[in-house]
C-alpha cells in the first residue's frame, strides 16, 4: 500500500516535531492504541487493536524513528504482528511552516500487509489505511490544540 497526504496542525514546527515523538501523546492519538512506550535508541514498542472488516485482533509493533532531521523530517520504520497478520513498512513525515501559528505535515507511506488481514481484507485495505491515517491526524490535531 502506498499513499500520501497532508494536514494543517496548530502549533509551531519545533513543538509539533517534539510532540510527534511523545509516547503519551502518540498513544492517545493512534487509533486502537493500548500501549506505546519508548524503548530507548529512538525505538518504541506499541500494542494496538486493529482490523479490517471481520478480521480484527491485537498487533504488537516495533516502531523505529530514523533519518531524524529536526525539525523538518523523520521516518518511521514499522513492524507489526498479530493474529490477523503482519504489517511492515515505512512512513516518512515532513514538516513545514504554514500560515501564522500553523504547521503543514506531509506524510508518505509504503506499507505491506500480509497474512489473514491481506487475504480477506485486501480490497478494503486502502480505504482502511486512509481512514486510520485521517483519524490519527484528527486526534493529533485535537491533542495539540488542547495543549
Amino acid at each position: 500500500m502506498i499513499g500520501e497526504g497532508s494536514i494543517e496542525l496548530a502549533g509551531g514546527q519545533e513543538s509539533i516535531y517534539q510532540a510527534l515523538l511523545d509516547p503519551q501523546l502518540l498513544r492517545r492519538a493512534i487509533p486502537g492504541c493500548r500501549d506505546f512506550e519508548e524503548r530507548g535508541d529512538s525505538r518504541y514498542a506499541a500494542v494496538m487493536e486493529a482490523g479490517v472488516g471481520p478480521i480484527k485482533g491485537t498487533f504488537k509493533a516495533t516502531v523505529a524513528v530514523t533519518d531524524q532531521q529536526p525539525p523538518q523530517s523523520y521516518a518511521l520504520q514499522v513492524e507489526g504482528q498479530g493474529a490477523p497478520g503482519s504489517v511492515f513498512g515505512r512512513i516518512s513525515i515532513s514538516l513545514a511552516p504554514s500560515t501564522a501559528g500553523q504547521t503543514r505535515l506531509h506524510y508518505v507511506y509504503d506499507v505491506s500487509v500480509s497474512g489473514k488481514i491481506a487475504m480477506v481484507g485486501q480490497r478494503m485495505l486502502d480505504a482502511a489505511a486512509k481512514m486510520v491515517a485521517a483519524q490519527f491526524f484528527k486526534r493529533l490535531h485535537e491533542e495539540l490544540a488542547a495543549r
Binding site: 505491506s112 500487509v113 500480509s114 497474512g115 489473514k116 491481506a118 487475504m119 480477506v120 485486501q122 480490497r123
Partner: peptide, 11 residues
C-alpha cells in the same frame, strides 16, 4: 511481498 490477495471467494 508474497502476501496472498485471493483469500476469499470475493477475490
Amino acid at each position: 511481498s508474497g502476501a496472498l490477495l485471493s483469500g476469499t471467494f470475493a477475490d
